[in-house]
Design a protein around this nucleic acid. Sequence first.
DNA 1: AGATATATTACAACACGTTGTTGGATTTGT
DNA 2: ACAAATCCAACAACGTGTTGTAATATATCT
Lengths: 203, 203
Amino acid sequence: MSSVGFEGSNMETQCKSSTKQNLIDAFWSLYEKKDISKITVKEITTMAGYNRSTFYEYYRDVYDLLDQLEETLMESPMSEIENNFEGTGFESKLRIFSELFEKKKKYLSVLLGDNGDPAFHRKLKNKIKPGLKQTLKEEGLKDETIIDVILEYQVSAMLGIMVYMHTSDKKPDLSEVFEITYDLCNYGIKQTVEKLVQEEKNK
Amino acid sequence: MSSVGFEGSNMETQCKSSTKQNLIDAFWSLYEKKDISKITVKEITTMAGYNRSTFYEYYRDVYDLLDQLEETLMESPMSEIENNFEGTGFESKLRIFSELFEKKKKYLSVLLGDNGDPAFHRKLKNKIKPGLKQTLKEEGLKDETIIDVILEYQVSAMLGIMVYMHTSDKKPDLSEVFEITYDLCNYGIKQTVEKLVQEEKNK
DNA sequence: AGATATATTACAACACGTTGTTGGATTTGT
DNA sequence: ACAAATCCAACAACGTGTTGTAATATATCT
């Protein structure tokens, strides 16, 4: 049922209100299927079994609900990333992130998909970057502008791949995809393509 | 009077109605500033100087207007990409695309940005891919699934970088950014970082 | 040319659905 | 029992999309 759990170090009533979660669940089942702008408060509350006005007890509007959902979604995965620094390289952190993506894919693949929220896309990128930035600095890079360009490049590519994996009808093999992206990241496209062509010949 | 001079030798495109364009312009000036869901037909028509109902003569709703705008935007840039195959490598095509992006950046950086349209993001990717796919096949790659993964990786990274360049407050130097992404694409992150660290030391 | 049809463009008015709020009813914990 | 938490019916304001109509171009005919 609830994978987004609401826990609160935050203000306001964080009572056991299952109503809030019920509304989130109803909203999500709609959001998976259609654009947020076409979702009405009435739809959500009817589906969840409440009166429409009850919605406004908990959320300012539909976008407020989505914001809160995104917020809770953002907390746990990223704190895990931030606390998983044991791996030295860029790649190990990317792997950690891909595992976290896997856990939350139900939500992430929608939020990052065709009817998703572009602002969330950027928020997520900004959460991922600091950890990777650390690694780049340890490699000796100083220029912040350059670092940021590399981060944007890498994070965009990785997010693109992950969304692709979960939305493509081809359903490619996860570990195969990961190996390819790993190679692309480390050796660049030329060497990766050469290697892959070689492998195809050997089959 | 807004009588646009037209004689009989015209294609259907231009002189048809300036109203349509006026509505687009008004819409865009709003869309640059706020989310599409908060834009009302009334706002658009008032700003353009028409009655609200006039809007419905030309568009079904606000999203229809955006769709049509995206459609016309998609035509020219991509046909140029598709007809610019003279460059052999991946990189030259990427450069061509970045130049096209530059021309249309007023629209693209908004559509791909925080209040943009994720569906457009994917539509654009899909327009870019075929040309690059061709190149990969010429290199000897056969497996479609693998090709698609590489394309998604590369296109995601490039689009990410381009949006970043046009929205970052740092306003990084275009040619410098392009060189970095070129290196990342061709040689991978390790070699690129090493090279950059070396350059920083030499300064 | 002049007169009459035809198409296009703009608008005001209408019926309807959604929104967000208010004040009050009902449930729940202690 | 009583106070807080939770839920709901009704209301006014607003946005939507449609319809019928007026004004102004453009085409057609004699």
